[in-house]
Computed example of a mutant assay.
Amino acid sequence: MVTDLDAAPDIARVRTSLTQIKDTRGTRVFRVVNGVILAIVCVLMLYPFLNIVAKAFSAESYIAAGQVNVIPRGFNLTTFNAVMSDAMFWTNYKNTVVYTVVGTVIAMLLTTTFAYALSRKHLRGRNGFIGIAVFTMFFSGGLIPNYILVAQWLHMRNTLWAIVLPGAISVFNLLVMKSFFDGFPSELEEAAALDGMSTYGVFFRIVLPLSKAILATMTLFYAVTQWNSWFSAFLYLDQKSLFPVMMYLRNLIAAASGSTEVTGDMQDAVQIGANIQSVTMLLTVLPIICVYPFIQKYFVSGVMLGSVKG
């Protein structure tokens, strides 16, 4: 029988070996090179965003001359004032928040339940359901049939449901969650079933609380997709009071780019046309940037846990 005292020398030798490996010249070179590469990648990733921020607060003349990098030149708030003083902007912003929250909740409810059902090998017709889901990744009914279905048959035009229901389930996210649930320990579910817990009880009280990483990841995916969506609103919404903020900003950019006459002072109009794209990108990306740090730790582990195994 091997005791802790007998194993102590072996553990010490392993620790010594690891220390020696870490102190080798090749390892030190690797750390330096790896640090330099990561620093370059960080700079490359941050520069476009910092450039957008700088252009959003810069004057038109400096932007046109290509003199704006990461520091604003000719600081001004003309475009911000033009956008944020419009009451319709805030109405559309509120709509986007509602669409994102409701759409994400519905999408997560449908995706998690469907994925969990598909992960159960005793489900009758399981392969058929998986085949139907995968089929929709490659083939669709087309734009016109979808429009007729949503607008005329389901009568969802100019409603919240036209935005949140047609794309409620992403098949890619569904397959990732199914792969995660496939690897879930069956012993926990069997023990809960022996205690008299129903299938729904096992799912909501056992499975979901232990799946926080993949749930956070899928929530982020759905929320970002819904937040950035504008094409569904372009198709199914006619009333400006129902537009999401992306649709508002799209129309604003189109108006600033295609119109030569803008009401108000001409200098302000030129300024709005010069940096409105930077301002709109900044306003729309900020909420996601504010949310991401709180779920980043779940995001990385969730992607790895839910990865499709070959």
Rank of each mutant, 00 (worst) to 15 (best):
N146C: 06
A54Y: 00
V176E: 13
L154V: 09
L38H: 07
Q20E: 03
D238Y: 03
L175I: 08
G258M: 13
A117G: 12
G306L: 10
I106H: 07
L46P: 02
A255D: 14
L118S: 15
Q226K: 04
T136P: 05
A107L: 14
V14Y: 00
I169A: 07
L149F: 06
T19K: 00
S232M: 05
V14P: 00
P72A: 01
S179Y: 11
V32F: 13
A56L: 02
I130R: 10
V33C: 10
N81G: 15
M137G: 03
P48R: 00
G74N: 03
L5D: 09
Q267F: 12
Q267L: 12
S232Q: 10
R15G: 00
G201N: 11
G141F: 06
H155C: 12
L77H: 04
V202S: 06
A133M: 07
M218P: 07
S58T: 00
T217A: 08
S301W: 04
Q226N: 08
I130L: 15
V41D: 14
V262R: 09
Y47S: 01
G35H: 03
I132F: 14
F180M: 05
E261G: 14
S17C: 01
E189Q: 13
S179F: 07
Y47E: 01
F30K: 05
G26K: 05
L44R: 01
R126S: 11
V97P: 05
V43H: 03
I206P: 00
G167P: 08
E187G: 05
I206F: 01
V70E: 00
A12P: 00
V270G: 13
V70N: 00
L215R: 04
V2M: 07
S257E: 10
Y222V: 05
A223L: 02
W230A: 01
A255T: 13
L305D: 09
Q239C: 06
